[in-house]
């Protein structure tokens, strides 16, 4: 059977309704999953950073790791913190710029390699 790209990559592998089934991940190792959930929940509690700051970090990271579930979840969290696409876009640019910079800095590896391999 042939699938269109959308069917293959979005429908088959990523289903929006699976986000609500995240708890199923714990079925085969509830102890470890509980540790993760406790850690995750505690990490997002307001501390020195506000809830708003934390969900902005979350939405930036979600884009960089290209997780559609996380993007959906953290976009909603941003809206619930009173933010708009202006805020989200700025955060994504920050995260993406860091990701871009991380690639670019590796150019120095190429420079070093050239030095090592050249007369």
């Amino acid at each position: 059977m042939f699938y269109s790209e959308e069917e293959c990559c979005m429908t088959e592998y990523y289903k929006a309704e699976d986000l609500d089934k995240f708890g199923d991940v714990g079925k085969h190792n509830p102890e470890l999953f509980k540790k993760f959930i406790d850690w995750y929940t505690a990490s997002l509690e307001p501390g020195k950073l506000t809830k708003r700051e934390k969900v902005l970090i979350g939405v930036g990271v979600a884009h960089v790791i290209q997780c559609p579930y996380c993007i959906d979840a953290y976009t909603k969290s941003c809206l619930e913190e009173g933010m708009s696409l202006e805020h989200i876009t700025e955060a994504v640019h920050v995260a993406s710029a860091i990701r871009g910079g991380a690639s670019l800095i590796h150019t120095l590896q190429a420079h070093n390699s050239v030095d090592r391999n050249s007369l």
Binding site: T50, R52, K76, L79, E80, E81, G82, M83
Partner: peptide, 19 residues
């Protein structure tokens, strides 16, 4: 009066008022 532009909850009133 602010209300969410969709099916999400409203943010904290005081924080949004400042903004």
């Amino acid at each position: 009066v602010y209300n969410p532009q969709g099916m999400f909850l409203a943010p904290p009133q005081r924080t949004l008022e400042i903004e």
